[in-house]
Nucleic acid binder design. Structure first.
Length: 357
DNA sequence: AATCTTAGCAACCGCTCGAAA
DNA sequence: CTTTCGAGCGGTTGCTAAGAT
């Protein structure tokens, strides 16, 4: 088992880096940039291979690294992302500013992996390490939906929730399956009936934290009026106490008319006016109903890391996340709305369209 | 106190991918 | 089209320190 090809050409040092080596590498890269990594050790005066230099810089010397132990929020995010992305550490790390894929991988293998095996830890992680209940509150008449609670869970963690690109759906129509049981990763959601309950406040909904990672958005949808006209003017609605939420009474999770269609990232736009909508047609009961689902997310007030390569977009800071459905604005606390997820992203969905030549 | 075990972490290795020749 | 090379990724190894025996 020999060294990498770039390491065979010269005598290279291996093993831990000395402070002197670190200093040489930092001085060189901060002055000249890394350029071609294979030429870095020569120019920096290091007896290392370029690959080793690259790794040392990326995983340890980069100035934007966070260091230190992972916060509970980061741990919860890693768990959430891993449940969707699997061992794609680089993808996961992209959503953790200042963390490297190596760091996330080590943390997972040395810490989370074992703990998550136990049901107890799993429940704790999903509960957000804090308050044991999440709260969704709809404030009428301002039509603001506020998710209270500083803990983490995903808004759109369900890949099935992401809409196909509009160009593939001129009518923006999605059909919903009669049951969610066949949707991947949705097993737990069938228990939603048993764990959702309404508090004594008519506009106050309490969700069992163990299931809260499953899209509070859906709770919101389930309480949207059924007679919304997506083509009509902006209208208000009431978020009513309709009794217990019945997962069977309305649609839960959108599927795709064509299973081969790719889910896409919600469109990100610069202002609320650009938010667009899709209709969802429920076909799980004798009478169909149509609701409007926002396909646009307005991040104008927030620090968003846009990256076309990302599978998910992470909100880093911010006060409130302004969303809108069917022309009806509402806000969400981004400390809760940590991630907006999608399994795939179509080119051009995130970025502004190229101007015509 | 000595030895063994374990956890955490840094670094390495082999592989894939994409760009360039 | 094929080859080469660099960058990046995920799996794995190996070192060190702390804890257990």
């Amino acid at each position: 088992m020999g060294h990498h090809s770039c390491c065979n050409k010269q005598k290279v040092k291996r093993g831990l880096w000395s402070p002197e080596e670190d200093e040489k590498l930092v001085n060189y890269i901060t002055t000249y940039g890394h350029g071609c990594w294979s030429s870095v050790p020569k120019h920096a005066g290091l007896q290392r291979c370029g690959k080793s230099c690259r790794l040392r810089w990326i995983n340890y010397l980069r100035p934007d690294l966070k260091r230190g132990s992972f916060s509970p929020q980061e741990a919860a995010l890693i768990i959430e992302l891993h449940s969707i992305l699997g061992n794609r550490w680089a993808q996961i790390a992209k959503h953790l500013p200042g963390r490297t894929d190596n760091e996330v991988k080590n943390f997972w293998n040395s810490s989370i992996k074992k703990k998550i095996m136990s049901q107890e830890y799993h429940a704790r992680a999903m509960s957000g390490f804090g308050d044991h209940r999440h709260h969704l509150m709809a404030h009428h008449p301002n039509n603001h939906l506020v998710v209270e609670d500083g803990s983490f869970f995903s808004l759109l963690g369900n890949p099935n929730i992401i809409l196909p690109p509009p160009q593939q759906h001129p009518g923006h129509q999605l059909s919903l399956p009669p049951t969610t049981s066949t949707l991947p990763g949705m097993q737990g959601l069938l228990h939603v009936n048993d764990n959702f309950e309404l508090s004594d406040r008519s506009d106050h909904l309490t969700i069992d934290p163990f299931l809260s990672s499953h899209d509070p958005f859906l709770v919101f949808w389930n309480n949207l009026p059924r007679d919304v006209d997506p083509s009509g003017p902006i209208q208000s609605f009431e978020f009513e106490n309709t009794g217990s939420i019945n997962a069977n009474s309305g649609f839960m999770f959108p599927s795709y008319e064509n299973p081969g269609e790719m889910p896409v990232m919600p469109k990100l736009c610069d202002n609320a006016e650009e938010i667009s909508y899709c209709n969802l047609t429920s076909m799980d009961s004798s009478s169909s109903s149509t609701r409007s689902l926002p396909t646009g997310i307005c991040p104008s007030e927030y620090s968003l890391i846009p990256n076309p390569q990302m599978d998910r977009q992470t909100f880093v800071d911010g006060v409130m996340l302004r969303l809108s459905t069917n022309g009806i604005p509402f806000t969400m606390n981004p400390s809760v709305a940590t991630t907006i997820a999608a399994t795939r992203m179509e080119p051009g969905i995130l970025a502004d369209p190229e101007p015509p030549n």
